[in-house]
Design a protein around this nucleic acid. Structure first.
Lengths: 339, 339
DNA sequence: CTGAAAGCGCTTACAG
DNA sequence: CTGAAAGCGCTTACAG
């Protein structure tokens, strides 16, 4: 541990005082100019900007945080099993930075049962002004430190947000996929649902049931799964031997991969006897045999939008308009007319 | 923007002063007791601990950072294309927290050419005491702010670290896999290498070549790939029609998936005509048909160890002993005796 | 529009 | 072993 005063000898990072000195103005003027506040002449603002650039000045976040009583930090809670978290994180951190925040992922354990206590701890730490939750956990109100609330946005709110575009906006690709499959000649469907704690899983199941009704086709059932590949495999194993050709709507590409394996086990051809669609567009999905029809999600935009929504909530400003065209269906070999 | 003094009215988070008051000691005693430093009696220490617990006291990190002139932040730079980043992040953040640091991922763009400038920016920001680099980028010395160095640990150092266990420790599974394949009857091998900017790709290629020599078998070549599935697909397409049964060592499961698709295209059976091994143990790998023989990596332990190594370097302390048993070969359907 | 000053919460050298 | 004090760099109310 060095004594800080010693380090004064070393060349140190420029402070707002240094900028003020170089620009020939007061430290207050620097602060006002840099934050874009009124009360400083254009000429002064200009000189401050130049001085700041010349010194490569960057505000000390710790000092700002202490003075403003805000941490400037946002947490993004996601279960360790999350798929493709990096694009979402990149979108989120980029959008956060534009607004002067730092966003960091809070990786929750594999065991879903531990999520609530982990989240409580993050809230209690008081480190985060806001939390984005990509796990369906009920968080206690006012679990934060006394006197400072942590703003929490849950994935169900995103789902609601997306749904706002139209009915089942988030799950709309389900209907679109089924419509096309019906056009191909499919008359029998099966849905493997995700865990129903996830609003997105509920929305997709509801979209599935709505499409069954709308297109007047048969549903062989809705099997409750859990996003895993095993749930897809088990679903196929549970079908009777005399199952006729069927189109399966799986909750993601992993479960779809399990479905394909299960069909192989039973000697059913894909897509001849069984068509299957996934969700998420894994990197392997376009290469597997058969390649998997899936729904691609623009995670980077979703991350950026979610953070902007969180920041708007923190600041009490208007919520940004919901995103459109976030999802895209990719047709591949795992779906075809029934034989 | 609220005026901070107003918030004094609201119930606020306990400070070290509050703890001192409750424990009936000085603020200095609280600081000393909590940091475990000498110069405070056991009885005092006890009272401080109790008071801190009663008030749910947590030190204000911004204030500490300002006083100590340290940010307490570590960055983990990883390309957006990284596989399974969350377990590694969880291991890293957990280990960082134990040492009083906060570790955050810095997600670099898809375009490798941008990595260097992105890293320069992170270093120049002065926000990070240390950086862990999971991208093979040469970073300029002393790119950090004047007077405070950012400690940087690159993935090549991890590779070196792992290799310290024995020759090619990191790549040792390559030799083990090939030995077993030779025992199965394989005499012809092919290696698809990862991009050779990655020390791990070089190590695996070298391990491959060493095994070819050691077991006195034929190598059909080393094809330079880039971790993508396409590189596996292209590798197969480039082989002549009369290619005899061969065992392929792919750089990861994604490339192995490409190999399998390529073999299908050409009408070659897997694993009859072509055996293939991957690396990384994707979630889909055990479910694909055929399931993929692979190398599983304990990313959580790797993340924790890498961070401990970084912190030890920052503090000028002894580097922790290298990890063993970080990798595990998983034998699956994609490898079998040649037909 | 500017300058001088206060204070966020912490750690640590210093005097007792 | 304790207490009083300084100071990290910032933002902002206040007086001019």
């Amino acid at each position: 541990m060095n004594e800080p005063t010693k380090e004064q000898n070393v060349e140190r990072r420029a402070t707002s005082r240094d900028v003020a000195r170089l620009a020939g103005v007061s430290q207050a003027a620097v602060s006002f100019a840099l934050s874009g506040r009124d009360g400083v002449s254009e000429a002064t603002r200009q000189r401050v900007m130049e001085a700041a650039a010349a010194l490569d000045y960057r505000p000390n976040l710790a000092a700002r945080s202490m003075r403003t009583q805000r941490t400037g930090r946002l947490g993004i809670a996601m279960p360790m099993a999350a798929f493709h978290p990096l694009p979402l994180l990149r979108g989120a951190t980029g959008a956060a930075q534009e607004e002067g925040y730092v966003a960091e992922p809070l990786v929750l354990s594999m065991d879903h049962a531990e999520h609530e206590s982990q989240l409580r701890e993050y809230i209690a730490s008081g480190l985060y002004e806001g939390l984005l939750l990509f796990t369906p956990v009920r968080v206690p109100e006012a679990a934060g430190p006394r006197g400072r609330q942590t703003v929490i946005l849950t994935s169900s709110e995103f789902d609601d947000d997306m749904r706002a575009i139209g009915e089942f906006a988030d799950a709309r690709p389900v209907g679109t996929i089924m419509e096309r499959l019906v056009q191909m000649g499919h008359r029998r469907f099966l849905h493997i649902a995700g865990p129903l704690e996830y609003p997105s899983a509920v929305a997709r199941r509801d979209a599935y049931l709505a499409a069954i009704e709308q297109f007047d086709v048969a549903s062989l059932g809705v099997i409750k799964g859990d996003w895993t590949g095993r749930s897809g495999l088990e679903a196929i194993r549970s079908l009777p031997d005399n199952t006729p050709p069927v189109a399966i709507i799986a909750p993601n590409d992993l479960a779809a991969t399990g479905v394909i394996r299960g069909a192989h086990e039973r000697g059913w051809s894909i897509p001849g006897n069984v068509s299957v669609s996934g969700w998420d567009d894994f990197e392997t999905s376009e290469l597997q045999v058969p390649s998997i029809t899936t729904v691609h999600l623009d995670r980077e935009r979703l991350g950026a939008h979610s953070i902007r929504r969180l920041i708007a909530t923190i600041r009490g400003k208007a919520i940004p308009a919901p995103l459109t065209d976030l999802q895209r269906i990719i047709w591949r070999e795992s779906t075809a007319p029934p034989e």
